[in-house]
Design a protein around this nucleic acid. Structure first.
Length: 150
DNA sequence: GCCAACGTTGGC
DNA sequence: GCCAACGTTGGC
């Protein structure tokens, strides 16, 4: 079992949105490294930290899980979608996604500043300078440590 | 294949 | 709104 962190802007899609919908196809990721994590790294049942970015209180707000194996992101084929990619095709899809399944909200937000302040999380990809990936790997040790902060 | 210009992310 | 740190694009 592997662990991940996925960012979302709460104005676009928040943990409460996920709680209401139960499961959400994570469409719109258009970064190759993030795609590779979803397509090649994720397996159904993997753990996900749900992170709110670009908001007054950035931080980890909930727990989700990977609900499916990776499959082609349908929005890449839709000319009316913001995520349409003319260079992709159904026979050779470029972008993949997984379903994100709601587990629970955290009792409190574990803020970015808090995460940054912990020596145990120095290697967490999220707190490395310049990391803008929306999908990041988390080690089991980091996962367990962060859960302990709740 | 290089690299400058441009666009995006995301914290502050 | 600013700015650092990227990734992408496109001319050559």
């Amino acid at each position: 079992m592997n662990y991940w962190l996925m960012k979302s802007e709460p104005d676009e899609f928040s943990i409460d949105d996920l709680a209401r919908k139960k499961s959400e196809p994570w469409s719109g990721v258009r970064n190759y490294q993030a795609r590779n994590y979803m397509r090649d790294g994720m397996r159904a049942g993997d753990g996900i930290f749900f992170y709110h970015s670009s908001c007054p209180e950035p931080g980890i707000v909930g727990i989700a899980s990977v609900g499916s194996a990776a499959y082609p992101d349908p929005t890449q084929f839709d000319p009316r979608s913001d995520y349409f990619d003319a260079k992709s095709s159904r026979t050779a899809p470029r972008w993949f996604l997984i379903d994100v399944k709601f587990k629970r909200k955290l009792k409190r937000i574990i803020g970015l500043a808090d995460l940054k302040a912990r020596p145990e999380l120095r290697e967490l990809a999220l707190v490395k300078p310049g990391n803008r990936l929306s999908v990041l790997p988390v080690t089991k040790a980091q996962w367990d440590f962060i859960l302990g902060l709740e």
